[in-house]
Every structure is written in structure tokens, then in C-alpha cells.
């Protein structure tokens, strides 16, 4: 067995209440992301799937208090790192794509400029060179007329286009070893969603990226992911290969979730 790139080890924690108590939301969450694989973390609202992923990047909500556990990335515990060390990991080694790409971009700078700035931050070089890389990345995610698009502002992008640009930024500009995708296609139309998922799978394969897809939708998982982690109410319910989860789910919750997701589909 190869070693996991990222290993979440019994992560527990909760939200600090007004009375000083901690309302638990994560209960000994453990899962591994294997190098080169696309792993889905699936769960409904309140399952803790996003919170766990945000903790990996150290960008969890301020009210969250960890009560135990480790997050090992390439053998190092991310939770023991100071803010400066974490900054060198965030973006350069681990990057994230959020649900609402347009909200995640700065509205007053052009898309190309924002991507070029991030490129220079991580790799240095001239502004000209960085802009060329940005345009190249936009082309790689199949945005038509990348030169013209790079000069546009986020509000001139449709939701699907903005998400492509976000993926270009997170995967191609940052060149991380781990890419976290937090509900990247939620809120997009199904045809756009299918295109974006195809793109994600292609990029991960071409770049040899390890990726973690956080989603509530088992439908997008079946055709795209290698492994699945099912979460419910702050716990990991079941982990396994995608085939195993879909064809032989072991836990009742997984079976229920699967049945609910397969509504209306011929079996």
C-alpha cells in the first residue's frame, strides 16, 4: 500500500456556544486521500464534510474549536504548523475551489490579472510571463478566446465560466499536489455541471493531482471519483472504492442515501 497524501486522523471538534460550551460537530473523523486519486466526501447538510476540508486549509469558521485529532499532509501534522508555515502550504501545496466562483474572485480586478498575481506569488517571474501563463491556463480549461476573457472582470463571466477559471487558478496556476473542490458544481445547470466534472477528472489525470470532491450529490460521484467517503452527522459512516460504495454499500445510512439519490432511476 502506498502512503496517503493526506490523512485525517480522528479529527474532533465543535462550535463554541455563547455559554462557553462546545456543541460537537465532528466526531473522530478519519479518512485518507491516496495520491493520484479523486476521492469524494459525500454527505448531507450538517454532516461536517465541508468543515473537515476547511480545517485542512486552516480556514474553518472562527467559532470552531478542535478537541482532538491530527491532519497529516505528507507526514507533517498541519494542525501543529504556525500561521506562516500554513501560508506556504495553502495555495502552493493545497488549493481549493469553492462553490460560488464569482463570489470568490475580486470584482475590481480582471480575471487574468488575478490569476497572474497568484502565479507570481507562487512562482515569481515577470508580469508578462505570468499573464501568458494565466491565458494558457484559461485555454486549458476550454474557455473560448482566453486572451479576451483574461481581460474581463468576474461579473462578465457566467457561473460555469467563472468556475472553469477558478479551477484553472487552483489546479494550473497554483500547481498544488492536493486540490480540494467544495461543491464545485452545486447551483450550476446540469449540462454545465457535466462539462465541469469532465474537466476536473481530465485535469486531475493529466496533472497527476490528488483531489477531494466535497459534494451532497452521489450522482456526480459515480462516474468521476475513485473512492468515496460517506459522512453523516459529524462522523465517517463508510469509506470504500466508488464501485464498492455503489454496488455493495455496507452501512444502512449509505444504503438509505443511495436509495434516496436513485429516485426515479431505472435499476
Amino acid at each position: 500500500m502506498t502512503a496517503a497524501l493526506l490523512s485525517i486522523d480522528r479529527l474532533s471538534g465543535g462550535f463554541l456556544g455563547a455559554d462557553g460550551g462546545i456543541a460537537p460537530v465532528l466526531d473522530a473523523v478519519s479518512y485518507d486521500l491516496m495520491p493520484g486519486q479523486l476521492t469524494a466526501v459525500v454527505g448531507e447538510t450538517g454532516s461536517g464534510k465541508s468543515l473537515t476540508a476547511l480545517s485542512v486549509l486552516g480556514i474553518q469558521p472562527p467559532a470552531f474549536r478542535r478537541t482532538g485529532g491530527r491532519i497529516l499532509f505528507g507526514g507533517r501534522d498541519l494542525l501543529s504548523l504556525d500561521a506562516a508555515a500554513m501560508r506556504t502550504i495553502r495555495g502552493a501545496r493545497i488549493s481549493i475551489v469553492f462553490q460560488d466562483a464569482r463570489a470568490a474572485m475580486n470584482p475590481v480586478f480582471t480575471v487574468g490579472r488575478q490569476m497572474a498575481d497568484v502565479f507570481r506569488l507562487h512562482h515569481g517571474g515577470s508580469a508578462r510571463h505570468a499573464m501568458d501563463r494565466a491565458i494558457e491556463a484559461l485555454g486549458r480549461v476550454r474557455i473560448p478566446e482566453p486572451e479576451r476573457r483574461a481581460r474581463q472582470y468576474p461579473h462578465e463571466f457566467s457561473g460555469g465560466m467563472a468556475q472553469r477559471a477558478m479551477i484553472a487558478l487552483a489546479a494550473l496556476i497554483c500547481q498544488p499536489s492536493l486540490l480540494i473542490l467544495d461543491e464545485p458544481t452545486t447551483g450550476l445547470d446540469v449540462t454545465i455541471q457535466a462539462d465541469i466534472m469532465t474537466l476536473i477528472v481530465e485535469l486531475c489525470r493529466d496533472q497527476g493531482l490528488t483531489a477531494c470532491l466535497i459534494t451532497h450529490d452521489l450522482g456526480v460521484v459515480a462516474e468521476t471519483c475513485d473512492a468515496v467517503v460517506v459522512m453523516h452527522a459529524g462522523r465517517v459512516v463508510e469509506t470504500g472504492s466508488t464501485e464498492q460504495i455503489f454496488t455493495a454499500p455496507a452501512e444502512p445510512y449509505t444504503r438509505r442515501l443511495l436509495a434516496a439519490s436513485q429516485l426515479g432511476e431505472p435499476v
Binding site: Q193, A222, E223
Partner: peptide
């Protein structure tokens, strides 16, 4: 539209019209 709709099943063959 049907080709793009996510299906929560393993090993589904589908129309690839995009």
C-alpha cells in the same frame, strides 16, 4: 440534458451527446 443528468449508479452507459 438527459446525458448530463447525474446518475447515482455504478457502471451506467449513457448517451454522450454534448
Amino acid at each position: 440534458l438527459i446525458a448530463a443528468a447525474p446518475i447515482a449508479q455504478w457502471g451506467v452507459k449513457r448517451d454522450r451527446l454534448r
